[in-house]
Structures are given as structure tokens and as C-alpha cells.
Design a protein around this nucleic acid. Structure first.
Lengths: 176, 176
DNA sequence: ATATGTGAATAGGTTCACAGCC
DNA sequence: GGCTGTGAACCTATTCACATAT
């Protein structure tokens, strides 16, 4: 498959795609294009998703529950193996397959299961406190859904998903 | 408040913040800093969120339901006023305050209520089809949660939220 | 004295254009 | 002939440095 076809599927330009791949090595064959299976495999290896990655989720509210039920992570190589909440036994609207533990069990779990990534869906008011706790427990990457800027050591990776900002962006560009 | 303090809160550098504001006008007072109330107001005006913006949501599954219950949009000036689903009467785990309509009511609703923005939380397999329908109905901005690249006319704004990509990003950077 | 607003300098990212290989 | 890989050219974004205003 050519870089042009791949780029169309990804929503970028062919040269962009080729340049980006070039940063990690050479993947294609001149005159022929890319072997999609081999390319996919090598990208998974680079991303570290060729083996299933365990992930934990902190904060089992509305959004947390929805993400625990979301099937889209598995085929990309991620599994949310457990959830943690300040009130693990509170009644919830939905049945989920993952266990919900109290916060006091987090550090032990992370160490025993060697979990490196956490999804943070707690209220903004406690997000920093919980983040500190995650870092101390040995988490190295946080997917943060709270609308605050987390202060973490610089060897900790934080990705922010801020839904209000996404809407604000749309709002700005959809004004006539 | 100084650009330094604002920048710290936003997680950027002071010069970045000043330069960005400069693209829209002059907001601060030399020697003094920024009047936070006035700045906030002027930014809301620019973003178009100083009046409440109506938003609709399409696809009332796990994630859609969670977003319908999410309280974080209101204080940023957005309200999800209605939801649409191929099967509006299906039993759902959670009680929500918004009405759920069938897809056949969408176009009429959008026109009558003058809605410009939609949150798309349908399965990937139907996302493009639904997006076409949204565009035809007069929607100008789409917040897309399905993991596909939507093809839309260029005057339509699409923002993508792809949770698997966020995790892949973390996975890459948390490999030792 | 203090902190903005902004040209100039720098860094980073994208696209072009084509040599190199199938 | 076709399509990749990549230096060079171009464009955009960030940071610096300081004149300017309070």
C-alpha cells in the first residue's frame, strides 16, 4: 500500500507520513509501498503495545464507569485491569467486569502488577492529590480527564483530555 | 495578575501567553498585569461562550450517557440540550435529564433550535454516515469520539478525541 | 520599579523536489 | 515506471530581549 493511500486513511499528507515513519527507521519498499501487516507490527513494537498493556482507572464516577465499559481499548493493546475509588462500595448504575478497590490498595496493586499507566477520572478538587499518590506508587504515565494542570516530576508523562476546551475550540471556529 | 502567574496556572510560559493574547488584542496593563475578570469576559466573547451554547449529542451508548451526565460543560458555557440515537427507547442504565430522540427528528430539531455543534459518540461503523447527516442538517462543528477520520466539507470543523491514541502516546513515552 | 506588547532571533515542523531503489 | 526516503526550502510557532507604558 502506498504512502498516499495510508495518508488518506490517516487524514494527513503522504510526505508527512513518510517523514514521520523515517524518524523510526525504514519501513517501505521503493516503487512498491508498504507491507501493512509488517508496518503495523513494527509500530506496535515501537509503541509498546504488541503485548497487552495493563492500565488502571482512578475515580469511578460517570465518566470512569463509561471508560471501564469501553471496548475500544482492547484491540489497540490496552486493558483496564482494575479501578480505584475513594468509595469503592457505593452503588453504581452499571455492571462492570473490573474490580473496584479502595485507594489504600492502589500502591500495593501497582507494584505487584507492575502497572505503568493510569486513567484519572476523579473530580478536579482531588486530582492533584490523587496524582501525587499515583506518582508515589510508581505510575509513569497519566491520562488526565480533570480540567486542571497537574504538577508532576518531569519524568512522569501526562496527557490531558479536556472536553470543555474541545468544545470551546469548535465554538470559536463555528462562529460566522 | 501577571502573565507569569497566569502562565503557571495554564501550564505554559509567560511569553507564550502574552504572544497568544496579542493575536486578539491588548488585554493587560504594563507594569500591572491583567484584570482577571475583564480578561475572562473578553476571552468568552471571542470564543462565543459568553452566551450559553446549545449542543446536541448523537449516540447514547456508554460514553454518550456519561457525557450527558457530565456537569463540567455548563460553567464553560455549553449545554447538551438533547440526545439522538438510532434506538431512542432502548433501556438505559442511567437516568438523564435530556430527552432522547430518534434520528429522524434530528434535522428538524437542529434547524428549529439553531444548534451549531454536535458531540458524536456513535460506533465507528456508522460514524461517517451520521456525520453526513449532521452536516446536511446544518451542524458546523463536530466533536468526534469515533476512531475514524471523518470526511466533511472544509467549512465544517471537526475535533477528534481518540482515547486509544492518547494511551498509545503514554505507552511510548513510558517505556524505559 | 514592574510587567506588558512586540520585533528579531531561534527552533520546530511541513512540504517540495528529486535521487535512489525496486 | 513507480514510490520511497531525505536533504533543502519553506513556513509556523516559540522564545528572547527590550522599548514602552503605568
Amino acid at each position: 500500500m502506498s504512502s498516499e493511500a495510508l495518508a488518506r486513511a490517516a487524514g494527513v499528507k503522504p510526505t508527512q507520513l513518510r517523514k514521520d515513519l523515517a524518524y523510526f527507521g525504514t519501513f517501505g519498499t521503493r516503487g512498491l509501498g508498504y507491507d501493512v501487516g509488517a508496518l503495523s507490527k513494527r509500530i506496535s513494537d515501537k509503541l509498546g503495545t504488541s503485548r497487552l498493556q495493563p492500565v488502571i482507572l482512578i475515580g469511578v464516577g460517570n465518566l470512569g464507569l463509561a471508560l471501564l465499559s469501553y471496548r475500544g481499548f482492547e484491540k489497540e493493546g490496552f486493558e483496564i485491569i482494575a479501578a480505584f475509588d475513594a468509595d469503592p462500595h457505593r452503588k453504581r448504575d452499571k455492571q462492570i467486569k473490573q474490580p473496584i478497590y479502595g485507594m489504600d490498595e492502589l500502591a500495593g496493586f501497582v507494584k505487584k502488577q507492575n502497572v505503568k499507566m493510569a486513567i484519572l477520572t476523579v473530580p478536579a478538587s482531588v486530582a492533584q492529590e490523587v496524582a501525587n499518590y499515583l506518582v508515589e506508587a510508581g505510575i509513569a504515565g497519566i491520562l488526565n480527564f480533570s480540567p486542571i494542570v497537574l504538577a508532576v516530576p518531569e519524568d512522569i508523562m501526562v496527557n490531558n483530555v479536556n472536553l470543555a476546551i474541545e468544545l470551546e475550540n469548535l465554538s470559536y471556529f463555528t462562529q460566522e
